[in-house]
Write a protein that binds this DNA or RNA. Structure first.
Length: 484
RNA sequence: GGCCCGAUGGUCAAGCGGUUAAGACACGGCCCUUUCACGGCUGUAACCCGGGUUCGAUUCCCGGUCGGGUCACCA
């Protein structure tokens, strides 16, 4: 049988990292077995409707390469794929259950339900419905309906025995049926509850593997009973442990955790994000860590999914992002970095591409760019202690000598390329009987005004050009003289 | 509170009755080097606790602790 998984997000306007990982796993489970990945939009909550939110979902799937085989935008055999467009069917299915004696009308008012809860000794959250309306006779039900009394339809749970289901990652789980509440299937406004719509949709869309967060683990017996009531085969369940911010909190946008688009705008690479979240809760049978999507499809297996929650570690993502940047071919990197480079360097005539080459192996995120090269436009204020470097064997005195010697030599030098400049300064070091570092470190420092820079002395000289280089060298001399 | 689930270094994680308990991130050190970064080498650091079962438990069973989830006319 063909494997069919579905991603069923609510359009909230952003892509939550936990949801994205769920989508990834759903995609991988389907694709690793040659199956189909379906997109269904769960927009029944009209109050939470957000403008443009569905587009965010389409865009994210497109960007990440999680291409769906069926969905609202591309159609398919089992549509519609937007839940709000499927409203007609749920009532019929619910009535079918009433017919079969597996569900019943309930006319209880909110007030009665509330008082039921209030009288519960364990607190209002723990009260189960008392089946008051299950005892209504056919005639009473009929009379109520004719009267136009508002009603809901409830699922009739067995009051004895246990229900067991198998989850691929958590194994066999059994609960007492007495724990199960007669949950509402159809609300008084005629709309289905999520629980009911989900089962009907998954079945009618022929979903074979239901992949979702572990928060649904405890309601799964109810779903299974629903499948049984209809006489349908239940799908294979794959529950996923949550992605956490720390040991006790799930990742949540509301508490300031980053969404997918936040990460992108902070300079993270799509592929790195996907690679990283693939490893949050799943591990391959070998030690591979860097994966292309195709490799993931090939290597993904459900048995590698873990049961325990994982904490989202931005540091490891950042490391991985750096790996992706380093491995990327230059043209692609330049394309991604260009706007940030141009934002960071405004001085005309600067060779941005050359800077990009220097930066590529030094960046962890694209957002590091600005901070790393803002010295190009403006030499920062710096103290002369920067000239002191133990390993380079430099002191302020040596630095002053170096800079003073370097200025005339460089003024006379015309071939302003890295190799030529390097040769030139090395020659100077030799003439002065200085160590290489004793020339190069002071020059680098004078040119950048920073303790570290994305290139050495000669590279910075190339970036800045001859005039600016001489100017900054003289500035360095001035500062060192003043510090004497 | 009832029920369900989980627990290996700071983090991600391998492990599936016998191991010197992998690997990665982070952190420290060393090397390379014109700083930084890259690269290479290296170090610190873990089986939640108590009972069983067993010749032998990180691994299996039971109890506890801690953490999470769930118990809506929300999804």
């Amino acid at each position: 049988m063909e494997v069919r998984t579905r991603f069923a997000p609510s359009p909230t306007g952003y892509m939550h990292i936990g949801n994205l990982r769920t989508a990834l796993y759903e995609y991988l489970i389907a694709k690793s077995q040659g199956g189909k990945f379906i997109l269904r939009i769960e927009d029944t909550d009209q109050e939470r409707k957000v403008e443009g939110a569905v587009e965010v979902i389409y865009n994210t799937l497109k960007m990440t390469g999680l291409n769906h085989d069926e969905g609202p935008d591309i159609g398919g055999e089992y549509g519609p794929y937007v839940q709000s467009e499927r409203m007609g069917m749920y009532m019929d299915y619910a009535l079918e259950l009433v017919e079969k004696g597996k569900a019943y009308y309930c006319f209880c008012t909110k007030e009665r339900l509330d008082s039921l809860k209030a009288s519960n000794e364990h607190g209002d959250a723990f009260a189960r419905y008392d089946r008051h309306c299950f005892n209504l006779s056919k005639d009473e039900v009929k009379a109520n309906l004719e009267e136009g009394k508002p009603f809901v339809i409830r699922q009739l749970m067995p009051n004895e025995g246990t229900t067991t289901f198998d989850d691929v990652v958590y194994g066999s789980i059994t609960v007492d049926n007495s724990e199960l509440d007669d949950q509402i299937l159809i609300k008084s406004d005629g709309f289905p509850t999520y629980n009911f719509a989900n089962v009907v949709d998954d079945h009618t869309m022929k979903i074979t593997h239901v992949v979702r967060g572990s928060e649904y683990l405890s309601s799964t017996p109810k779903y299974n009973l629903l499948y049984d009531a209809f006489g349908w085969d239940a799908p294979t369940y794959i529950h996923l442990p949550p992605v956490m911010r720390d040991a006790q909190h799930k990742l949540s946008k509301r508490h300031g955790d980053k969404s997918f688009e936040d990460l992108i705008s902070e300079g993270y690479i799509v592929e790195a994000i996907m690679n990283y979240i693939a490893l949050l809760g799943w591990s391959p049978s070998d030690n591979q860590e860097i994966f292309t999507m195709d490799e993931l499809i090939k290597k993904f297996n459900i048995s590698g999914i873990s049961k325990s929650p994982s904490i989202f570690d931005i540091k490891k993502l950042t490391w991985m992002n750096g790996e992706y940047i380093k491995a990327m071919d230059f043209d692609k990197f330049y394309e991604l970095a260009e706007s940030r480079l141009k934002e960071a360097v405004k001085t005309p005539g600067i060779d941005i591409k050359f800077i990009a080459e220097l930066l590529k192996s030094r960046l962890e995120t694209l957002n590091d760019i600005n901070e790393m090269i803002d010295f190009v436009d403006n030499l920062p204020e710096y103290g002369t202690e920067l000239y002191i470097h133990k390993k380079m064997k430099t002191t302020e005195e040596i630095a002053l000598k170096s800079l003073k010697a370097a200025v005339p030599v460089l003024e006379a030098h015309d071939n302003w390329t890295n190799d030529s400049l390097y040769e030139c300064l090395m020659g100077l070091a030799k003439d002065m009987e200085f160590k290489n570092g004793q020339i190069l470190w002071p020059v680098r420092t004078a040119l950048s005004g920073e303790p570290s820079s994305p290139g050495g002395a000669t590279e910075l000289a190339v970036i800045l050009g001859k005039d600016e280089t001489i100017k900054r060298l003289n500035k360095g001399i001035e500062l060192l003289e003043a510090a004497k």
